[in-house]
Amino acid sequence: MKKTSTLSKLYLTVILLVMYLPIFYLIYYSFSSGDTMDGFRHFSWTHYQALFADTRMISIVLNTIIIALLAATLATAIGTSGALLIERIKRRTLRQNVLVLNNILMVSPDVIIGASFLIFFTFLGIKLGFWSVLLSHIAFCIPIVVLMVLPKVKELPQSLTDAAYDLGATRWQAFSQVTIPGIMDGIKAGFFMALTYSLDDFAVTFFVTGNGFSTLSVEIYSRARQGIDLEINALSTVMFLVSLLLVYVYYRFSVKPSSKGGVVK
């Protein structure tokens, strides 16, 4: 392998520094004993103690995680079936149009989606809270899952399902033992993408959370408006570590099996 040139090394270092500096700045002050980020006093766990004593914050974190897990799971189920059905559409133009409709949801601004959900839920008389947040999260996660799963469905050769039938499988057996394992990489990727989208969504959630229910991003936003509290820094640090763990898990379980098909044993 060619050695990376000094210039490109420098470039990478600068970019990574610029990207991660604010986060490390935040993390750094989470260990300060002071109440503001004006200057670092001395090391302490105060803000972490405050965070873990803050039951409202803990319950909001749990809410966020529950919403994310539920939304990602359901969106994965719906999105995967969607991708399989889209691939079955025989007419090219119709299939293209369905895909365009799917992609519009991906690119349209969250604020507009959030506002339209708000109008939709109030029109139907659905009380804003857990269910409205969950429903809207599922809705904006589905297109992501479809996009992640569809290429895998396309790659899956027809002969694989034919082979399953040939060996005596019923439709369900062929589906569960051949089709699903065949597109599993896409399903996993879709699930993790949906999970992260749901976890960090602010705009849509902001519109559809009612009184008494909140997710982390909305809560942090409303607290930050009242002045910076270093408890937020502590929370951010914890979340950063959790994300790190998630990324690790994702690469461990999702990327590795797909690279197995390559040259490396």
Binding site: S159, D162, A163, Y165, D166
Partner: peptide, 15 residues
């Protein structure tokens, strides 16, 4: 799946 026939596919179609 109910025929007493089995196929060897051109692309092998191994799972």
């Amino acid at each position: 799946n109910q025929r007493q026939v089995n196929t060897v596919f051109q692309d092998y179609a191994l799972f």
